[in-house]
Nucleic acid binder design. Structure first.
Lengths: 236, 236
DNA sequence: GCATGCCAACTTCCATGGAAGATGTGATTC
DNA sequence: GAATCACATCTTCCATGGAAGTTGGCATGC
């Protein structure tokens, strides 16, 4: 235990201390993700503070961070509003994801052999979870496993900035993702695409991994964006 | 004048109102960029507030934003410190830039003809400025023109998230850039590379524009990172 | 009925004070 | 002389109040 503590210190991990700001940030982010505050919702910091049982200050500061993340917007003296996502925004987000994840895959494929195989194993596990979920007809489990695959991709690539950017983007896109999940047909194609990416990583073929990941996300975009447009949703 | 105001409103531009937080944010960012607060500098919000002639609150909130940008870090109860950049960070930043700008170029090349040529003209202008600066032996002007080229690339690509991410990254890398500017030999190669990118955009060849921009930034990374390592700088 | 202007009720924005935590210094103990 | 502990001082963190700005409604005038 003592060793653990020292280890933590040595690892430069500055010890998490739960602050009210952090609590508010997480709670609000979660509330937005799960449509507790639907897009377009407008409320006051006072009201949110009351709901979270804290003062206005930590709420205010959490909202500053959420605004930096692009999730909310404060309308100077008129309250804070949850940013709605237009199809245009989804397109933008996917364009960045295409570029970012392709780079992440490329970096993974350039890792030393041992670690590369380890990551590939993790990716493979997430992919078989998707397979299983599909057999069980459990869309939510499928989405969770798919999420895990893509999260692993960026978290293991060795670039903290890629990880952070990808996280912020998927936070934004989460609502759209949940919507389209129910709308489209069974996503059987993803599994094969994931296996292609994994294979390229295993072989250490950076260019191929890049191309496969890129194509996978391009396909996703080309499927989702028209779908969203077709249902006539202006924002969500 | 009245027309202007109406025009602004119509354009959904929510009217900039200079708030103290915004002032503090810009002032601090600028101070960090220009090494007024050198990397590793540690100070208190109180002190900064005094220096900027305002209360602690707006400074505190500005620092939250700067922390979100990755420029500073607040050490809970021990002051705020300016994040030093290790060579590792430079590598990370460039990896993201490689991916992001390649995508931006690709998007530019996919624009409708008219706008594409317009942007190409802008890019060409920045590039000839670089040429001129090189003839004048004015490194600072060269850097400014080079900056403008890359900024134009991402600002005109039609993706606001790409623009934002690129801006944040270049803010972080600015110090490193200024340092290496003096260290390396004359950057004559960039001009040809820029022209290749411009040509691809003019022709509307998305894949080629992507590849050219990517290669240009890869070269930059492969030149800068070893350079920084070679001078034995651990962080800056 | 309709436009106009005032006003009360909100909102964020900023200042300030106290609470709690971190740090370094010096007294105390052995 | 070295280790330990109390404490003074500095820091961020959070609460709260007042200032300034925005909005919607209501009275007023025609």
């Amino acid at each position: 235990m003592l060793v653990d503590k020292l280890h933590m210190r040595a690892r430069q991990e500055p010890e998490k201390k739960p602050s009210l700001v952090e609590d508010a940030y997480k709670a609000l982010k979660d509330a937005i993700r799960n449509n507790v505050f639907p897009p377009g919702y407008q409320g006051s910091e006072q009201e949110i503070a009351l709901r979270l049982g804290m003062s206005r200050t930590p709420v205010h500061e959490a909202i500053i961070r959420l605004q930096e993340d692009g999730l909310v917007r404060v309308l100077s003296k008129r309250g804070v509003t949850v940013c709605p996502l237009a199809p245009e925004d989804i397109r933008e987000i996917y364009e960045v994801i295409i570029a970012i994840e392709a780079m992440a895959s490329e970096l993974l494929a350039a890792l030393p052999d041992e670690e590369r195989q380890l990551v590939a194993d993790e990716l493979e596990e997430a992919t078989s979870d998707m397979e299983q979920a599909l057999r069980d007809d459990d869309l939510l489990a499928w989405a969770a496993a798919d999420d895990l695959f893509h999260r692993t991709l960026v978290e293991r690539c060795g670039n903290s900035r890629i990880r952070r950017i990808a996280q912020t983007l998927t936070d934004q896109a989460h609502r759209a993702r949940m919507l389209t999940l129910k709308l489209r047909s069974k996503p059987t194609g993803s599994i094969a695409a994931h296996r292609d990416i994994i294979a390229a990583i295993r072989k250490g073929k950076a260019a191929e991994a890049h191309q496969q990941a890129r194509q996978h996300r391009i396909s996703a975009r080309d499927e989702l964006v028209p779908l969203i447009v077709s249902v006539g949703i202006k924002h969500l």
